[in-house]
């Protein structure tokens, strides 16, 4: 029985995908991100994703250098974060963010990407309701 090249490519694709999937399930999807407490307990040397909540009132932006700074917390441990990445308009106090970057010192994290993990709650604005101020608007339009 001779298989045509397209059959072999197709089988290769399906098998590769199933092996990748089996690997994801078996290793419990590796760990997509760590928390500040986990990072403090077991430092990672190299690129890592870090998840936490933006601490209220901690966000600042230096217009001259273009560096965004804020503190990130998981309720127990806090990291000081700096980044040149401009996050989306959903970035604000108390929002959950996934940082892609690396530790520069214990408790200090440099993020190449600041991704907003939005919730699965969808609600329209109630009459007269205002949403928390958009920090980025202040950053971008603040001068």
């Amino acid at each position: 029985m001779r298989l045509r090249p397209a059959t072999i490519i197709g089988l290769g694709l399906v098998l590769a995908a199933l092996v990748a999937l089996g690997g994801l399930v078996a290793t419990n999807a590796v760990v997509y991100y760590v928390t500040p407490t986990e990072l403090a307990a077991k430092p990672v040397d190299g690129p890592v994703r870090l998840y936490g909540i933006v601490v209220g009132g901690s966000v600042s932006y230096d217009r001259a250098s273009g560096v965004l700074s804020f503190r990130l917390s998981d309720g127990q441990t806090t990291e000081a974060v700096t980044s040149r990445f401009l996050p989306t308009a959903l970035f604000r106090d108390g929002v959950g963010v996934v940082l892609v970057g690396r530790s520069t010192a214990p408790g200090a994290f440099s993020a190449d990407e600041v991704l907003i993990k939005h919730s699965a709650v969808y609600q329209p604005l109630k009459p007269g309701e205002t949403i928390p101020p958009d920090i980025l608007q202040q950053i971008r339009g603040g001068g």
Binding site: R4, P5, A6, T7, I9, G10, L11, G12, L13, V14, A16, A17, L18, A20, L21, L24, A29, Y32
Partner: peptide, 24 residues
């Protein structure tokens, strides 16, 4: 992320399905 990765694999599996069917 796990959702995006597994969805990409879904695409690969059924693309492979169509490729294999088309070649037999």
């Amino acid at each position: 992320d796990p959702r995006l990765t597994t969805t990409a694999l879904l695409l690969v599996i059924y693309a492979g399905y169509i490729l294999i069917r088309g070649s037999i």
